[in-house]
Structure formats: C-alpha cells, structure tokens
C-alpha cells in the first residue's frame, strides 16, 4: 500500500505539526516514509507545502509526481487550488474553510468556494471555529488532522491518536488532552 499526501497552507499555520504526527505514526507502524518540507524564506507568510509519502515498499522520489497524490490536507481553502495538478479524480481534499487573507488580491470568496465545490471529493470545515468552540484555539491543525484521519488509511486512527500522545508529551498532559480532543472533534466531521 502507498499513500501520497500533500499538506499545505500559509507559513506559520502549523502544517509541519500535522506532518510530524503522521510521520510519528508511520515510524511506529514501521512503514517507509519520505517527507519533503519547505524551509527558509517562504515560511514568512508565503504559501508552504509538504509532500508526505507513506508506503509499505521502498519510496524513491522525495516529491510526489503529478496526479499521484491521494489526499490534500489544507489549512487554507485557496491553497488547495495550487496543488490540483497533483491529484486525480479519486483523491480526497480535506480543507479548512476559513480564508487566510494576507494578500491584496485574494480571490472573491464566493467564486473560490464555488470552484472548490466543483471538485469531486472535498470536505470543508471552519476548523478555527471548531477549535475555539472547544476552547482549544491553538489546536485547529489537529481538528483538520481528525477530519483527514480516515482517508490516510495506511496508518490507523488509533495509531494517529498514539502519535499525538507521543509528539505532544513533552508539553504536558493538558496539551496532549487538548490536541486529542481537537482530533476527535475533527473526526466527527
């Protein structure tokens, strides 16, 4: 089995934490993994992405080929559109529905959402609103991971929970519980 994931958003939104949790789960599960990240200048409020490749057999390229991504996990709705050439008709898209507007020419939201709705398999949710509603505003990215959990398949939901426990352990029990709760909220959607 092989799963190719594109994690995307805007620099500073926390996509690398999502990658770290999935990476931890994959490492525990003993599967192959390659994860290409963006470091440097683009982290300053620019578009960022990470290619996360998971497989039960050896992986060659650090980058996902065009049309081969199984899942886009996006912290920002417009950013989804940047990576469409990497997906195919059976791929899934799981995205935050709350725009992050830090550019003057951000598209009209109505048109943006109309275009997103033409895509075959897409799930949208205002994850920041959900995170706030459970009093965990900083765990929006774990809400998103919860939404995406069942599409990742190659690692199970329970393995992801375990990975959240491990990754956040050094920050204390309260933070672990907060992130697990956010993850469960995401799972409901």
């Amino acid at each position: 089995m092989k799963k190719d994931l594109i994690l995307c958003g805007v620099g500073g939104q926390g996509i690398l934490s999502i990658a770290t949790v999935i990476g931890e789960a994959a490492t525990k599960a003993g599967i192959f993994l390659k994860q290409a990240e963006v470091h440097g200048m683009s982290q300053r409020g620019g578009d960022v992405q990470s290619n996360l490749r998971l497989s039960t057999t050896e992986i060659y390229s650090d980058l996902i080929p065009l049309g081969k991504a199984d899942l886009i996990i996006s912290m920002e709705p417009m950013e989804v559109l940047r990576y469409l050439p990497y997906i195919n008709k059976s791929s899934w898209i799981v995205t935050n529905s709350k725009p992050f507007v830090n550019i003057p020419n951000y598209p009209e939201e109505e048109k943006l959402f109309a275009e997103l709705d033409t895509l075959p398999n897409i799930k949208k949710l205002d994850i920041e609103e959900v995170a706030k509603s459970i009093m965990m505003p900083k765990s929006a990215n774990m809400v998103l991971l919860g939404m995406a959990a069942k599409y990742i398949e190659i690692v199970s939901v329970e393995q992801l929970r375990e990975a959240i426990r491990t990754v956040f352990a050094r920050k204390g029990d309260a933070i672990v519980e907060a992130n697990l709760k956010a993850f469960e909220e995401g799972m409901k959607n």
């Binding site: 200048m41 409020g45 620019g46 065009l66 469409l84 830090n102 951000y106």
Partner: peptide, 19 residues
C-alpha cells in the same frame, strides 16, 4: 505525463512577506 486537473482559477500568488 498527463494530469486530470489544472491549477484552480481563483488562485493568487502568495509571496513571503515581512512579519
């Protein structure tokens, strides 16, 4: 190399910026 989708239309460049 063929793709089923092209980049979306309602998409703008998002260059890095000073914090």
């Amino acid at each position: 190399v063929e793709t089923e989708f092209v980049q979306g239309k309602n998409l703008a460049a998002r260059p890095p910026q000073l914090c």
